[in-house]
Design a protein around this nucleic acid. Structure first.
Lengths: 139, 139
DNA sequence: CTTTCTGCAAAAGGTTTGCAGTTAG
DNA sequence: CTAACTGCAAACCTTTTGCAGAAAG
């Protein structure tokens, strides 16, 4: 089921609430990692729901404009933006062995602070950290 | 002119020293930012030198394998790798305003060390850091 | 002389555009 | 009812593959 808070975010935007948009939101919120449009279409199909890839591209554009999702700059992957006003900051650890993805609760300051010191003048608005390796169960 | 140290890196690898490879190296070393294959072809043309795009793609693959260039994750942009290092680890800063991408040479230890302390038992094999905001020119 | 490399053509993959029909508000 | 949205087709751009000829070592 689609989380009601997410649905509210969609309602609060100037976007119309349509079936494809609900499906995309549901898939993104259930995914534990960023997804690209093709992956979203595939997951939808796996759930018995068909959406056109082009539609997903357009939905992602609209969601990005409305700050509902965050697009990873490098990859064309998207993830739900949980703290729209705070920042689009994410830290995750992906186990190469069992595939488990965990969200790391690490303090931003220790990472970001050092960076600012090293590169004075820049302003960091968002960040995404991804680590992979072996989790403590698989190590 | 092509820097002799760079040329040596090419000679030291198992790759043959060919004209297209010299051109690519020269362009990359003169560029102050990461370039994608199309940009390399265009800059070559601007210097009166014609290379096929496919050739550039293949050259970049070979250079990456030989640790001569570093590929920015996702961006399909390449830059001369001054510190031939573990190519699984990337730190990039993307300016939201001018789109400039810079690769940050920050020590892994400061970032990774803290993480290991906090999550004992995990083994980190690769990481990807992405920061975005405003570069010092746009800030 | 052998193996690697290049350039061309074509295929494959990812993303965007145009348009007619549909649906939310 | 109207503006926004979807789905399909097709265009477009990026990247990969296959192959014959050229060049490096």
């Amino acid at each position: 089921m689609l989380d009601s808070k997410l649905l509210d975010r969609l309602k609060d935007s100037k976007l119309k609430v349509t079936l494809p948009r609900r499906i995309v939101l549901e898939i993104l919120s259930e995914a534990d990692k960023p997804l690209n449009p093709y992956e979203i279409v595939d997951l939808a199909k796996a759930n018995g729901k068909k959406i056109d890839t082009v539609t997903v591209y357009r939905i992602m554009d609209a969601f990005e404009d409305s700050n509902i999702v965050h697009k990873l700059k490098g990859q064309s992957k998207y993830m739900i933006c949980e703290h729209p006003c705070d920042d689009h900051c994410h830290h995750q650890f992906i186990c190469d062995s069992c595939g488990d993805v965990s969200d790391l609760h690490i303090s931003d300051e220790s990472f970001i602070g050092e960076l600012i010191k090293k590169f004075p003048g820049i302003k960091i608005e968002a960040h995404y950290f991804e680590f992979s390796g072996l989790c403590k169960n698989c190590n």
